[in-house]
């Protein structure tokens, strides 16, 4: 059995670091792991997707349409954009943060603020975690990604390794404290439901 995770966000939100930590943890748990990230143009404020697959034996590193078991969205409309990748019966974990793209800022296109509610209607299993708000209240909005990581590891019940030690070894040294708090808050946000 292979589990397919698609992480999606906007350039600069830390999706790639999150995927790195997640895959290091999965290797430690003994899984075969492949991840795929496409970078290049996406640094410049575009959509960033990283894909991660784990199981006993994984061949391809990327996920086709309709193949993701879970989508982790760091931004609201990015969840919407990634929806075609979700499997029937799949799950979405998303932050309801809104980041406006240039066509929205210039008024050429409009931002669907109701995206989370609409997604809940289309997909049974949608978990909204206000990770950026949580991270901001802890002291650094950039810890949003690690908060979502907490929510994800808890949703998938990926227990049995010391995630906190792993995070501490992989985030910038000055941000360890805030990231660990963010991680715990992410775990708690899921446990409560």
């Amino acid at each position: 059995m292979t589990t397919n995770i698609l992480l999606t966000g906007v350039g600069g939100q830390g999706t790639i670091l999150t995927t790195k930590i997640l895959s290091a943890g999965l290797v430690e748990l003994g899984y075969d792991v492949k991840m795929s990230e496409i970078h290049g143009m996406s640094q410049r404020g575009g959509t960033v997707n990283t894909q991660l697959r784990y199981g006993d034996k994984v061949y391809a590193p990327n996920i086709g349409l309709g193949e993701a078991d879970i989508i982790v969205a760091f931004e609201k409309v990015e969840a919407l954009r990634a929806l075609p990748y979700l499997k029937k019966g799949g799950k979405i974990v998303m932050d309801d943060r809104e980041i406006y793209s240039m066509p929205v800022l210039t008024g050429a296109q409009s931002y669907p603020h109701e995206a989370a509610e609409e997604l809940k209607k289309a997909v049974g299993d949608v978990l909204v975690v206000s990770a950026s708000k949580i991270a901001e209240s802890i002291g650094n909005i950039r810890a949003q990604n690690i908060c979502l990581l907490g929510a994800l590891t808890e949703s998938l019940k990926l227990n049995g390794i010391d995630w906190e030690a792993l995070i501490a070894s992989m985030v910038p040294p000055k941000t360890v404290d805030v990231n660990l708090q963010a991680f715990r808050a992410g775990v708690k946000a899921v446990q409560g439901r």
């Binding site: 575009g46 919407l80 954009r81 929806l83 793209s101 931002y111 609409e118």
Partner: peptide, 19 residues
């Protein structure tokens, strides 16, 4: 085919081109 996409959502995401 293995996967079958979930229901479509009525909304479409605004474009996010690199800038």
């Amino acid at each position: 085919e293995s996967g079958e996409s979930t229901e479509k959502c009525a909304l479409t995401a605004p474009d996010r081109p690199p800038v």
